[in-house]
Nucleic acid binder design. Structure first.
Length: 339
DNA sequence: AAGCAGAGCAACCGCACTTGT
DNA sequence: TACAAGTGCGGTTGCTCTGCT
């Protein structure tokens, strides 16, 4: 982009910082007169010395007449947790489901809530780096390492609805000790008085059903979907595809997958048989190459425990965090309905 | 009363996408 | 098709308020 001296000069004259009531009034007047949008022309058509971006932000976050102010209700909070589990940090998308709340509001609320829960739920303010390193060391040392749950099982937890095959707990680790500290957010186990934790990052539900990647349907397309997921994250989710389109895409993927299932050789030696899930839809199959990748890809990034449950029946306390003090039966972790 | 820490919030920044020429 | 301008989004920063010591 080319910027000339005039533009630079004008930029310098633009006001920043907190909006004054008179500025608000000017902006409201402008919107009443010209409607929302055309933010770049606000300066031409009003006395405001603010850039268009700033005006748009001020309008959408504070001046919009349909804006709801004040604390989030319990219903809103619950909805937000659900929506965040589904969509992640897609604040704009979440905002469309929470009428009267701006994306900035929601983001701020979530972040402050997150901070609070981090504090409440993590007595050790800093992640147990030493423990993680120890886990790594043990995993890679040859002397009787207690291997952590494979990345495969971790990934499987990201698709609980599909009831993916899960490897049994590592040797020397009882199911009793295999705790689910905060539902499916992370995955910790203890061995020899050492704690290990693996992250369980929820995946976008859009990609849970994978289309065939070839006419022979040897692959489920899951690996492609992981790449797609990565790409969408890389693009910061700024695609203009709206939710309906996204859902439509997911439906198409489901259809593709079903078509694939009907063509597939039933004796194909895949991990996952052609079972139906709780909703009668066929289960996806894991790509061989993905399985190889997962089995050779230990993951030790520590994650915090506050991440809310996805589809679990959770006990929500007044503070908004969930009850994780119970021991988890390993069998319960993977049989989740309604995710 | 002063200092400090944390929470909550408003606003900015940088990037990516869309649209117009 | 390429480029510039406009727009939207998510991450981050910094200010203000409040409660605690």
């Amino acid at each position: 982009m080319i910027s000339n001296n005039n533009e630079e000069k004008e930029t310098c004259e633009l006001r920043k910082g907190t909006w004054t009531p008179s500025e608000d009034a000017m902006l409201i007047e402008y919107v009443n007169k010209c409607g929302e949008g055309n933010w770049s022309s606000v300066r031409k058509n009003s006395q405001l010395m603010r850039c268009g971006k700033s005006c748009r932000l001020r309008w959408s976050n504070h001046l919009r007449p349909d804006l709801k102010k004040g604390a989030f209700s319990q219903e809103e909070e619950k909805l937000l947790v659900d929506l965040h589990a589904k969509f992640g940090n897609k604040w704009a998308l979440i905002a469309t489901k929470l009428p009267g709340r701006s994306d900035n509001d929601i983001k701020n609320f979530w972040n402050s809530k997150m901070k609070k829960q981090l504090k409440v739920r993590s007595p050790n303010k800093h992640p147990p780096k030493m423990v993680i390193q120890e886990a790594e060391r043990e995993h890679f040392s040859s002397s009787s390492p207690p291997p952590p749950p494979s990345f495969h099982s971790v990934l499987a937890s990201c698709y609980p609805k599909n009831n993916l095959t899960v490897e049994p707990p590592p040797p020397n680790i009882s199911a009793h000790n295999l705790k689910q500290p905060n539902q499916n957010s992370s995955f910790s186990y203890t061995n020899n008085n050492a704690n290990f934790m693996l992250p369980l990052t929820p995946m976008s539900p859009y990609y849970r059903a994978s289309p065939p990647s070839s006419p022979h349907c040897q692959n489920s397309g899951l690996l492609n979907d992981v790449v797609m997921e990565g790409n969408s994250l890389r693009g910061k989710g700024k695609s203009k595809m709206d939710e309906n389109e996204t859902i439509a895409m997911a439906v198409e993927k489901e259809k593709d997958y079903e078509a694939c299932e009907t063509r597939k050789n039933p004796t194909s030696p895949q991990l996952i048989p052609t079972e139906k899930n709780n909703h009668g839809a066929p289960m996806p199959q894991l790509d061989d190459e993905l399985i190889r990748l997962l089995k050779n890809y230990p993951l030790y990034s520590p994650v915090e425990k506050w991440y809310p449950a996805v589809g679990f029946e959770t006990q929500v306390h007044d503070e908004g965090f969930t009850d994780d003090d119970q021991d988890w039966d390993i069998g319960n972790i993977w049989n989740i309905d309604g995710w």
